[in-house]
Each structure stands twice: as C-alpha cells, then as structure tokens.
Design a protein around this nucleic acid. Sequence first.
DNA 1: TAAGTTACGTAACGATGTTACGGCATAATG
DNA 2: CATTATGCCGTAACATCGTTACGTAACTTA
Lengths: 214, 214
Amino acid sequence: MSPKTADPAVRARLIESAARVLAEEGPNSLTARRLAAEAGTSTTAVYTFFGGMDQVWHAVRREGFARLATHLDATPDLADPVANLVAGGAAYLANGMANPNLYRAMFDRHDVPDIGNDTFGRLVGAVRRCVDAGRFHRVEPLRSLGWAVQSWTMRHGMVSLAIAELMPAEHVPLHFADMSRCLFIGYGDDPEAAERSVDLAMREWRPVDPAGAS
Amino acid sequence: MSPKTADPAVRARLIESAARVLAEEGPNSLTARRLAAEAGTSTTAVYTFFGGMDQVWHAVRREGFARLATHLDATPDLADPVANLVAGGAAYLANGMANPNLYRAMFDRHDVPDIGNDTFGRLVGAVRRCVDAGRFHRVEPLRSLGWAVQSWTMRHGMVSLAIAELMPAEHVPLHFADMSRCLFIGYGDDPEAAERSVDLAMREWRPVDPAGAS
DNA sequence: TAAGTTACGTAACGATGTTACGGCATAATG
DNA sequence: CATTATGCCGTAACATCGTTACGTAACTTA
C-alpha cells in the first residue's frame, strides 16, 4: 500500500532549509525551486511533502513556534512565579529579535491560532501560577486568561516595533522591565513584591543557547 | 523639459486602487497588471509613477499611515491629556481592526521608520501634554519618549493579536482599558486620576467616520 | 518473482514583476 | 504658428514564480 515510502529526512531538510533561507535572505528568497535545490531534490518533492508553498509557509510558522517553545522551556526556574513570567517574556523577546524574518512570518497569515495555541498555553500556565501563588488578584478565570493575552500583547508589540526599528534594540530591556512593572503591579496587591520580581528576573535571566535561536 | 507631463490623477487612482484591492482581497491580489487594469492604464504607468512594485507597497504603507493620522486627528478633545491619549489609542485600534490587510502591510517591511515618523510624533506630543499637565512623572526627555514607545507597543501588539484572531475582537476595548489603566497609573503620581481619565476616554470616545476608515 | 503503488526528476503551463521599443501627445523654442 | 524634442505609456517580450502532467525508478506486497 505504500511502496517507495517518502523519506522523512527530506521533509526535515526542507523545513530546516526553509527556516534558514527565510532567516538569512528574507521572505522573497523562499521559493519552491530554491528550496528544492537547498534540499538536493526537485520542486515535485515540495508538493509530495507539503502540497504547495502555502503549506510550506504554514510548516515554517509551526517551526518558528516550536523553536520559541524550546527557548521558553529553557528559561531557568527562579522560584518566583512573577519573575518566571518576566523571564519568559525576556526569552520571547530575545528569540523574536534574533530571528526577525521568522518572527514576522509567524504572524503574517491567518493560521496563527492553530499553531500558536501551545505557546499561548505556556503563557496561560505562567499567569495561573502567579494567581495561585497569590501574586495576582484572584479573579474570574476569563480575566486571568486576559492577563495572559495582555502579556502577549506587550511581548508581541515590543518585538514587532523593535524589528521594524521603531524602537532601538538596546532600549528593549528597559522598556520591557518598565512595562512589566506597571502591568504586574496593577495585576496584584503588593507593588513592592512585583517590582522585586521584575528586578530579579532582569538580573538573573540570561539568553540560553543564542546559536540555536536561528 | 517635461512634455506630456504625467497625470497626477492617475497616480492618485493607482494608490487608491492599491489600498482598496489590498483591503478587500488581500496582498496576493495586489499585482501590477491588476493595478493597471483598475486604474484604466497599463503596467508601464506603474513603473513611470513608482518605479516598481516595491515602491507601490511603500506608497500603500504611506497611505495607510496617512489615513491613520486622519483618524487620530478626528478624535474629539476631552480636555484631559491622559484621556486624550487613551482616546487616541482607541482610534488607533479601531482604524487597525477595520483595515487588517492594510495594517499588516504597514509593518511588513523595513521602511516603517521613514513613513511612521509623523504618526509617532503625534503620540509623542500626546504624552508630552500629559507630562506638562503634571499627570505623568516629570522625568528626563528620553524616558518621556519611551512612554510614547510603550504606548505604541501596547497599541500595535493589541491590533496585531486581534487581527490574527489571537484576541477576540469583542475583548479589545476591555483589554485596552485594562492595560491603559496599569500603564498610566504607573507613569504618574495619582492612580485615581489616571483611572478616571481612562474611564472618561472609554465612555466619551466614539469611532469617527468608520466608512472612511477603509 | 511479479505486480502494483508511490516518490520524484523533467519539462511544461499560466501568471507574476520588469523592461525594450515605438508611437504620440505635449512643452519648449524660433 | 511651425518645428523640435522630450518623455508618457500601450504593446509585447523576458526571466522567474507556483503548480502540474508525465514518465521512470524504487519499494512494498503477494
């Protein structure tokens, strides 16, 4: 029923090449022929594995979210849920700014919800841990979900403005800490504790494996 | 020196058509031939007026920022600088969510700074009026500029997540008011006044001329 | 071993951005 | 007003894009 099974390694090389070409040369260089040449095959293989360039872009976006998840998982546990939330944001920013083309592609089309759910789930968990620890107000669950959305709003807006060069890259940590302070103070009852958490995260967090961030 | 001068009306129609096709049918439908047909001319005209599709996209982005500026100017004066800042943000959100394809295009490439300076200047002015009125901390000018950048971060992040359907459109006003409260409380000395300003803006602000927002 | 099924290289098709060429309308000049 | 020259823009071509028809080779299955 399945003679001459398709080689999964070719598919992996195609995605890998797609992400690399996109990152290094921009979206205009990501063509079917270029992709086939990079993977040492022909354009037909692109269609047997993906069905079309739309699905290639979809796969590239999935890959982008997967790499982001890897970086989020690699952040050390600071034993302070609010600091962990801030550290996750810092990792998010570092990942996005290290890969502007890939990051832009991740939000370029309308299929983000399907492939971004896992990333968002991580963020929801981080916020919930803040609520459970009494660091954020204990409100209705929908409102708590909203805080995760608002955190993502801040992260995404900051990466986008930074890679569009509307915000100087060297100011990003300052702005991120500043906005995090304002938001997380507002989410909880203890302004000083929130401020300490932000300072702790900005002091302790270090970008993990920047080479693999591409 | 300039026989058979180019008709500026044709250029205006090209930009108008480009913005409309982009808004109604998406970026894939914005082709040179389609554009020429819409404006009743041939593809050569596109090159005499713009030089290439890249410059067409640049002009479309300029048009997008120009329309945004029109909407920002149309917001009523609430005689409260912080409320005006919030109202400007609401207008920004309404404009972006009414024109998702145009908004996406505005931040898609690397030429945003050139054409977004005027929009950013407006935001800086609104923040400065808050500082001058004593509603925000009187800090060094660079920090005050940073508050404008942070406001833009919030606005842009929110529009982007909303048009990517990562944030339900009906939750946008709630999240915007919530984040504005947290940020602007943190920027000033009087939390109650900030809260009143946000409530005032969210109560008094109305979208202006939604038909022309396209 | 034989047959059947599937991957994938070759080469084509339509559509894209871009450009060479030529006609012709219009400004500049006497 | 006549002449000239300048440059807009319609036609048609070119390279390259995504996509697909077709054929061959390779692998599974019986």
